[in-house]
């Protein structure tokens, strides 16, 4: 043992030296933190004061107030309706747009504009789209439905297009060789290869529409979000807690159901 330690002088270089890039990254982050905290006027005390308030907030939130269950249930029902209808239309439209945007099936004169449209749908947050639709079609569920249809297109049509671009082309050629029409090629060569993934994307989108449908109400586009926002503004924190718990329960049930659907297909 003694002989071994003798052979290890303390001058040996560390084989794992921290590289200059990682040091530079850390330095940049620290400098940024100092800069941003000073420009935004953030202090540590404010953070502490805020966290000090949290037990007051929690004590007002619990126990949750489920007494206005009629209002709660009608809001949840409207959110569900928005989510289901918008997922249906969003998925149906996305199927066609996804086909049109797939570069291996369509000429670029079709696919490029469709891709542009899909990217445009994706680049705005649903809430911003919701504001525009509330202006266009007024307060209520219709604005929420239209918003989420656009949000679904932005996300799911892109995934559909990517899934279609990844298919094996042998089957397409085989079906084409029989003299099949374009629709038959889609139905018998493309769809069987991508159908399972489509179900996965669609159930994911239903999930995410369910989450978003509880939120678009904040800007007046129907659903439980409006009830939630007004409860916040009236400081009814116990009712807020009830709404939040119902939303989380709804989302968990939705995830459970979409897992079942994925297992069936």
């Amino acid at each position: 043992m003694a002989g071994l330690t003798q052979g290890l002088p303390s001058k040996t270089e560390n084989p794992f030296k921290s590289s200059w890039t990682s040091r530079a990254i850390i330095a940049v982050i620290v400098a940024y933190l100092i800069y941003s905290f000073s420009t935004l006027g953030l202090t540590f005390e404010r953070l502490l004061i805020g966290f000090g308030e949290s037990d007051r907030l929690l004590s007002r939130m619990f126990p949750p107030d489920f007494s206005r269950s009629g209002l709660l249930l009608s809001g949840i029902a409207e959110s569900l309706q928005i989510a289901i209808i918008s997922s249906f239309f969003g998925i149906v439209i996305s199927l066609f747009l996804g086909l049109l945007a797939a570069r291996n099936l369509m000429p670029s004169i079709v696919s490029i504009p469709v891709r542009g449209f899909i990217a445009l749908c994706r680049s705005f947050h649903p809430v911003i789209i919701a504001i525009l639709f509330v202006k266009a079609v007024g307060f209520g569920a219709l604005a929420g439905i239209l918003t989420l249809v656009f949000a679904s297109i932005g996300f799911i049509a892109k995934l559909f297009a990517e899934a279609i671009e990844e298919i094996s082309f042998k089957q397409v050629e085989a079906i084409r060789a029989t003299g099949a029409s374009f629709v038959s090629v889609i139905v018998y060569a493309v769809m069987p290869q991508v159908f399972t993934r489509f179900i996965g994307f669609a159930s994911y989108q239903l999930d995410s529409n369910l989450r978003n449908s509880t939120m678009v109400g904040i800007v007046g586009a129907g659903g439980i979000g409006g009830t939630l926002f007004s409860a916040f503004q009236r400081f009814d924190y116990d009712f807020v807690a009830a709404i939040l718990m119902t939303i989380i329960a709804l989302i968990l049930v939705g995830e459970f159901l979409s897992n079942i659907v994925r297992r069936v297909f």
């Binding site: 004061i49 805020g50 907030l57 989380i248």
Partner: peptide, 28 residues
Amino acid sequence: VSSRSVNSLVWALLFIALFGPGVLAGIM
């Protein structure tokens, strides 16, 4: 899971109740 289930706007509303309106609530 609970962090993901609540939308960022709802988190913002909760943190506004704690920190008051402003940047800090948004960051949190």
